[in-house]
């Protein structure tokens, strides 16, 4: 048979299928971007075109749409961006450090009860957020956090189950001899963690940080429940606020607002695609 050679070029039909798949997956985003560049009338029409008519007006129209959204006095996107960045920054730092520490305790030290603690990590991944959403709100209230951004970032400093799980898998793969050598050199556990484990795990830690950044950036339900004041809105909430005005908000502006929220993630994705994809694969493969 002719298929024995594994280096045989894939058939053209495969490229065709993959090309169509890629188009299907990208179309919603492309259409979102295209709509955001058009004047209102062209946006809400059945014309199939990517750029406004005339195409030379693309830049001026885009500038108009985006500045209108950005400067809308009733929906303060700049403030929401700032809030989102504050939350994301604090949460990402806290999540990465604390998850790494917990994962270290669960992988590099043998102690009675380790299995039980790891089991709580696994179990917590199965708890649907709505189950605890309501009482969690009351806990935050009693802590005096409602009306602040704290509910969105403080919990991250206590680690996240999925990230602990992933880092634990990674740490397990680091040879134990390294610790022992370090111990002989007189390093404490703390020293081993910072001088041996962390430097060796930079790629895994970067993936945790990236994923958590994207998670915080995208999270909608937690801000919906825990954030009450407009001063603390995040971008995802602001976007919904923008939509609920949609009785009077034209599609081109709504899509411009959406594009604004998507673009940072898009840029981050393009810059870190390899690491992200490896991270997902690693998390899914290990049992």
């Amino acid at each position: 048979m002719s298929e024995i050679n594994p280096n045989r070029r894939p058939a053209a039909i495969l490229y065709l299928m993959l090309g169509m798949t890629a188009v299907l997956f990208l179309t919603p985003l492309v259409w979102m971007g295209a709509t955001s560049l058009k004047p209102e009338r062209q946006a809400a029409s059945q014309e199939l075109r990517l750029l406004p008519d005339p195409a030379s007006s693309t830049f001026s129209q885009a500038a108009k749409n985006y500045s209108e959204v950005w400067n809308d006095p009733s929906v303060e996107f700049p403030i929401y961006l700032r809030n989102t960045l504050i939350v994301a920054g604090l949460a990402v730092v806290g999540m990465t450090i604390s998850s790494a520490m917990v994962a270290y305790g669960l992988s590099r030290i043998r102690w009675p009860g380790r299995g039980a603690v790891f089991f709580t990590v696994l179990l917590s991944m199965m708890i649907p957020f709505p189950v605890i959403m309501v009482p969690l709100f009351l806990v935050f209230r009693d802590l005096g956090w409602i009306g602040t951004l704290k509910p969105l970032w403080v919990p991250a400093w206590f680690g996240g189950a999925f990230n602990i799980f992933m880092l634990r898998q990674f740490f397990m793969g680091i040879p134990r001899d390294l610790d022992e050598a370090a111990l002989i050199d007189g390093l404490s556990q703390w020293g081993i963690f910072w001088r041996v484990i962390v430097p060796l795990s930079r790629p895994a830690l970067a993936v945790v940080a990236l994923f958590h950044f994207i998670y915080v950036w995208n999270d909608f339900l937690a801000p919906l429940v825990f954030i009450t004041s407009r001063d603390q809105f995040t971008l995802a909430l602001g976007l919904q606020l923008y939509q609920s005005k949609s009785g009077l908000t034209p599609w081109n502006l709504l899509m411009a607002a959406s594009t604004m929220v998507v673009i940072p993630v898009l840029v981050l994705f393009i810059m870190t695609q390899g690491a992200l994809v490896r991270g997902v694969a690693a998390a899914g493969l290990k049992e």
Binding site: W31, T35, L254, S258, F269
Partner: peptide
């Protein structure tokens, strides 16, 4: 990388923005 990226990208889009786009589509 391109094909994989195209398929993977939508999972990174904020749900809220994705929902807006589908509302429109």
């Amino acid at each position: 990388g391109f094909f994989l990226g195209a398929v993977f990208l939508p999972t990174l889009v904020p749900m809220m923005a994705a929902a807006m786009v589908w509302l429109w589509l």
